[in-house]
C-alpha cells in the first residue's frame, strides 16, 4: 500500500516536471521567435568593440567606472553600467540598450545621422557586420574592398548591388548585416569613400579561421589586418 502510494506520488511529481518543461519550452520558443525578429544590437557582458570603448570612456569620465578603457565588457564594466542605470532611473540590468546609450549621450548603433550619404550608411553597416572587432585600418579596408568591387566588371556596378549580391557576404546571409552600425564604422566608411584603400585594390576578404569556402583560397593574399586577410 505504502509502496503504491510512493509510486503514484513519484509519477505525479514526474508528470508535474514534464508539464513544467513543456510549458517553459512553448513559452521560450515563442519568446525566442520574437527575439529573432527584433535583431537589437545591445551591449552586455562579453561584448567587445569600439562601442564598448565609448561606453567605458563615458562611464569613466563621469566617475562610474575606474577600470581600463579596453573595449571588453567585463564584470567591472557591468557593475559600472548597473550603477549608472540605477542613478539615472533606468532598468538596472547591466545591459546597454538604446535607452542607456541615449542616457550616456552615445548614438545608438542603428542611429545614423540624417546628413550621412546613403552609400556611407550602407558601407558602414557592412563594415560593422563584417569587421566590428577588427582594427580601424581593417575596417577601412573592408569598405575599400566593397568600393573596389563596384569598380570591377566582375561585380554589380552599384554599391547596393554589390552588398546585396546573392552569396557575396556572409553577414547579409546570416542577418548580422541588419544589426546596425556605429560612429567608428561610419567614419571608416567615409574614409573608404574618400579614396583611402589600405587593401591595396583587393576584391575579397575572409577570416581564415571561419571561412568554409575552398574557392576563396584560390585568391592571392595581399595583406592581413586583424583576423581578416585581403586578396584579389
Amino acid at each position: 500500500m505504502s509502496g503504491n502510494y510512493h509510486v503514484i506520488k513519484g509519477s505525479i511529481k514526474l508528470s508535474k516536471i514534464l508539464l513544467f518543461i513543456i510549458i517553459i519550452t512553448i513559452i521560450a520558443s515563442m519568446v525566442f521567435a520574437n527575439l529573432q525578429n527584433q535583431s537589437v544590437a545591445a551591449l552586455a557582458q562579453g561584448s567587445t568593440g569600439q562601442q564598448v570603448k565609448e561606453v567605458q570612456q563615458k562611464l569613466k569620465d563621469w566617475g562610474y567606472y575606474t577600470g581600463s578603457v579596453d573595449g571588453i565588457y567585463g564584470s567591472q564594466t557591468k557593475a559600472a553600467v548597473v550603477k549608472f542605470q540605477k542613478y539615472n532611473g533606468l532598468t538596472a540590468d547591466g545591459i546597454v540598450g538604446s535607452k542607456t546609450l541615449a542616457a550616456l549621450g552615445i548614438a545608438s548603433s542603428s542611429g545614423v545621422s540624417s546628413n550621412t550619404s546613403s552609400d556611407a550608411v550602407l558601407l558602414a553597416k557592412v563594415i560593422y557586420a563584417e569587421s566590428e572587432a577588427e582594427p580601424y585600418t581593417g575596417k577601412v579596408a573592408v569598405g575599400a574592398v566593397m568600393l573596389n568591387r563596384v569598380d570591377s566588371s566582375s561585380f554589380p556596378n552599384t554599391l547596393s548591388g554589390v552588398i546585396y549580391q546573392s552569396y557575396a557576404l556572409e553577414s547579409v546571409s546570416n542577418g548580422r548585416y541588419g544589426t546596425g552600425t556605429n560612429a567608428e564604422c561610419l567614419k571608416a566608411a567615409q574614409e573608404a569613400i574618400n579614396g583611402w584603400d589600405p587593401s591595396y585594390g583587393c576584391l575579397y576578404f575572409w577570416n581564415p579561421a571561419t571561412a568554409t569556402s575552398t574557392w576563396i583560397w584560390t585568391r592571392k593574399v595581399v595583406v592581413t589586418y586583424g583576423k581578416h586577410v585581403f586578396g584579389i
Binding site: F155, P156, Y167
Partner: peptide, 25 residues
Amino acid sequence: ATNLAVLPMKDDLSRSLVYYNQLSD
C-alpha cells in the same frame, strides 16, 4: 548585370557580369 547578381546562384557567374558591364561601358 544588377538583376543577374540578385539571383541566388551558387555557380560563379562573374563572366556573365563582366559581359554585361563591359557592354554597358
